[in-house]
Design a protein around this nucleic acid. Structure first.
Length: 252
DNA sequence: GGCCAGGCCCCAG
DNA sequence: CTGGGGCATGGC
């Protein structure tokens, strides 16, 4: 059973909101509305959404392997249900996770919404696509992005836009080389590169280490490292991250 | 006010 | 290679 709350709102996408019984989200330039009581009914039979929600991946197998390896994770998976890794656009993920550094999920959302309204294409009276790399380079400069509130991340977004072709190279590289390629973008270090690989390229074995997951590893797995969860580190990490944030009542 | 937030760059040692 | 200061901004 897919846990849509955890899948949509636990830090892998910043494009969804809840309103009046519906999940509403922008996927590239499509506005998608899913009924909260039965999201699956709108996804099944729609190849575009089936791919976005990663229905073809064998989550059950991954969860069984993780559960057999670690009782803690077994408990979390039983409590959460499945957390899927969405197939999102690498460029949009790059924008999102450059913005994420030293920031809160709530404010990442706010900043990306500002970016949409200011530089993106209107796709409905109330929703905008994220700007493409070309749109950003053409219409924005560092001062304008700082004025929107991006702070020191402003030049990073512009550098990423200039180097957007790197993202095509990544798709044919193994994880280690791909991380190195992504770090050629100024402001992209190990953590942001990991998030781009996991969430933008579906690399399920990537385990991003941020302030939360570092703390989790230190406290709960003091003599392990993320390879303990291989080849499903990314999936394990989403469950650990979700559980820890829920425990601390962190805001989305 | 200080501390933290899905960090990274740069520089010392 | 590792550790620590600085960097924008907002919420608590």
């Amino acid at each position: 059973m897919v846990n849509f709350e955890a899948t949509l709102f636990c830090g892998q996408s910043f494009s969804w909101q809840k309103s009046e019984g519906f999940y509403q989200g922008v996927i590239s330039n499509h506005l998608i509305t899913l009924p909260m009581d039965d999201p699956f009914s709108h996804i099944r039979g729609n190849p575009f959404l089936e791919h976005y929600f990663d229905l073809a991946f064998p989550y059950q197998t991954a969860e069984e392997i993780l559960s057999s390896r670690d009782p803690n994770l077994k408990g979390l998976i039983e409590a959460h249900g499945s957390i899927h890794i969405l197939n999102q656009d690498p460029w949009e993920i790059t924008l999102g996770f450059i913005t994420s550094q030293n920031n809160t999920i709530k404010r990442i959302r706010t900043l990306l919404d500002l970016l949409r309204v200011r530089y993106g294409k209107e796709i409905s009276p109330t929703h905008y696509a994220l700007p493409t790399a070309d749109e950003l380079i053409t219409a924005a400069d560092e001062d304008a992005l700082r004025a929107l509130g991006f702070g020191y991340r402003a030049p990073f977004l512009l550098d990423a836009a200039k180097k957007v072709s790197l993202l095509e190279r990544v798709s044919t590289q193994d994880d280690a080389h791909a991380l190195e390629t992504l770090k050629e973008i100024i402001g992209v270090g190990p953590k942001v590169a990991a998030c781009i690989l996991l969430f933008g390229f579906g690399r399920k074995d990537i385990f991003p280490l941020d302030t939360w997951t570092k703390r989790i590893m230190k406290q709960q797995y003091p003599d392990r490292d993320p390879s303990f969860f291989s080849p499903y580190g990314g999936i394990a990490q989403q469950h650990l991250f979700f559980a820890e944030r829920r425990k601390k009542r962190a805001q989305w």
